[in-house]
Design a protein around this nucleic acid. Sequence first.
DNA 1: GTCTATATGTTGATAGAC
DNA 2: GTCTATCAACATATAGAC
Lengths: 220, 220
Amino acid sequence: MTKPHDQHAPAAARDGDTEQRILDAAHEVFVRRGSAGARMKEIAETAGVNQALLHYYFRSKARLADAVFRHAARQLMPRVIALLASEATLEEKIEEVVHLELEQLSRAPYLPGYILSELSHNPDRVPQLIAAMLGIEPDGFVPQVFSTLKRQIDARVRAGTMRRIAPEQFVINLLALCIFPFAAKPMLMALLRLDQDGFEHLIARRKREITTFFLNGLRP
Amino acid sequence: MTKPHDQHAPAAARDGDTEQRILDAAHEVFVRRGSAGARMKEIAETAGVNQALLHYYFRSKARLADAVFRHAARQLMPRVIALLASEATLEEKIEEVVHLELEQLSRAPYLPGYILSELSHNPDRVPQLIAAMLGIEPDGFVPQVFSTLKRQIDARVRAGTMRRIAPEQFVINLLALCIFPFAAKPMLMALLRLDQDGFEHLIARRKREITTFFLNGLRP
DNA sequence: GTCTATATGTTGATAGAC
DNA sequence: GTCTATCAACATATAGAC
């Protein structure tokens, strides 16, 4: 009696709710293969259902891909963006962002690779991502998120406790140090000759490394 | 009389050598769509030849994709790796790497996105990349590239002119700051509300930003 | 809601004329 | 070397029974 194709079917709270199982399977396959490489057959098999059911619930591959991407986008950055735009001090922001990102990405290490890949092959997904990150409607007005940040930096510069840096560069540096290791995980593991354990170990140590590095990097 | 499928046909030095035109077109399409999303039809049209010719020269889509990936991989990092392993001073290395990467990536801004995406969907490509980066045979022995770096850092730490940092973290930080802005270009352009000009401007300023930031970040 | 069977359209690849 | 015509395989999507 649920209504597929609607925003969200009530999701009969049964143990193995089918729609959710499909979504989980789709997530797994789309992240591993990319939108173009993913196959409906593999998704159906992973979910343990028939291929026709995917269409019953999501109508088309494109819609299923959208659902997966939206869900992934909501996971990647919204809290970080909100944090950066908040009224916390700069030190708090840095520490919190690093902690949050490394924590979150350790649990979903393939997310950055998937999202960046998707955006690079599918530019029309960009507005979707921005909307998810900022919690606004797609194509809606993108608020100036970094005005607070700019104000905080300016104050520090005037006080002589920080070198001058453009807020854009500040944000890019921070995101780069947190996200890149995951986006480039396969390459780094090979280049640095790490196994899975070695990589996790490196990330664990990295939380302190980034914080120190970043705070140092901003000294006057 | 040239021999396709061979390592490298002599490439009749005619103006519009067909094999090269195909390779260029393939590069363009594979980078834009990814290996899974690329279509032989589109490559043929881009090259201005018939689809059957692609198979005449490269036998299969997989082989063509390999050729493109190898070429891209040779462009991304080999000089940087060599530089990091060289006997130049740390300051020289940092300055040179930043200069080299930003210069190179400005001319091929979609390269990081393509390579990282390819690796994340195609783990079996990792050895190919490492081989291309280090200039060795695929599956050959990966030499310890970072021993020199480690020695240099240790010396600085003992002299009290640098804080302690693991060479792996050193390399990751440097690569992250250089490569991430390009890998995440579409996202950053939207998030920071930049057009193409704005992005290039940001990158131009970034060369000095990264150097300062990085050197500062290593102070004791 | 879930299945089997099938329609419809693409895609990579080959055969063979020129 | 380059083209046209065509194949076989596969992928998405639908129809319809249960």
